[in-house]
């Protein structure tokens, strides 16, 4: 059993990542247009590194409660690419994410992770899943919650204090989670993505309850994750501000669902 203090890093690259994200955020706030150009440039560099990880779904069908929700969904995401899943309520966005994560069985087709190697053998083992619920306990403090998930998930990346600063909750680590507002709770849950490293982020309505400023901050975090060769799949009906994201429009469901 390994124990990590709030500010300790287990991997030497983590410090670099922190500096990376920090500088990105600062730059982002200073000059948005400049930032976007930089991001494009950096992405090209990241892709040139030849990251070989690919998340591939072929002819995927999912069902919920015995009823087919979607069918024939396919995508192919390389490292550094993102996919936004859009569509009306009931189109199966959440179901798709749960099928990808492996929480629901696939009705047909398959999802696989190519080139994950020893460290990332399956999609489930290499994914962060952020669902509708925040998976945090109201009776524990924010830091206790995050420290638990860091210990449990392994692969520590940022310290708890750092991660909270990234989402604009710096200094609130000692507060009971139950005292936070809806937006603050969501941001604390987003900090969970940062305390342990996973290459794939599966996000279900990640910006629900967030205000404009936090949304922008979160897009910057996602961009940094993509620069590092991560993969993001987000179900949303709001634009997430991801440049060059692939989109998957859901809604042509085989058995039409009432909206």
């Amino acid at each position: 059993m390994r124990w990590f203090g709030a500010n300790s890093f287990a991997t030497p690259t983590a410090g670099v990542v922190v500096a990376h994200i920090k500088s990105f955020l600062e730059e982002f706030q200073r000059d948005k247009t400049q930032f976007c150009c930089d991001a494009k440039l950096l992405r090209r560099i990241a892709l040139d590194d030849g990251e070989s990880m690919r998340l591939i779904a072929e002819n995927l069908s999912g069902e919920r409660g015995g009823e087919a929700v979607f069918a024939g969904v396919g995508f192919d995401l390389a490292a550094g690419e993102s996919l936004t899943v859009t569509g009306p309520n009931g189109a199966g966005k959440s179901t798709l994410l749960r099928v990808i994560a492996g929480l629901l069985p696939t009705a047909a087709g398959n999802v696989r992770l190519d080139g994950g190697g020893e460290e990332w053998p399956t999609v489930a083992a290499s994914s962060h899943y952020l669902g509708h619920q925040n998976a945090m306990k109201t009776a524990l403090s924010v830091a206790e919650n995050l420290r638990f998930w860091q210990d449990f998930a392994g692969q520590p990346q940022l310290g708890v204090g750092e991660a909270l600063e990234m989402v604009g909750l710096g200094g609130l680590d000692h507060l009971p989670y139950g005292y936070l507002s809806t937006g603050q709770r969501r941001r604390a849950a987003i900090a969970k993505l940062l305390v342990s490293y996973r290459p794939i982020w599966l996000l279900d309505e990640p910006t629900a309850g967030l205000d404009k400023a936090s949304e922008a901050q979160f897009s910057a975090l996602m961009r940094v994750h993509l620069e590092d060769g991560g993969i993001v799949i987000a179900a949303t009906h709001l634009p997430l501000g991801l440049e060059g994201a692939k989109t998957l429009e859901m809604g042509g469901s085989p058995s039409p669902m009432p909206c």
């Binding site: 909750l169 609130l172 000692h174 507060l175 009971p176 005292y179 936070l180 507002s181 937006g183 603050q184």
Partner: peptide
């Protein structure tokens, strides 16, 4: 603590 959470918000 509640006030602090509000202020941060």
């Amino acid at each position: 603590q509640r006030v602090e959470a509000r202020r941060a918000e």
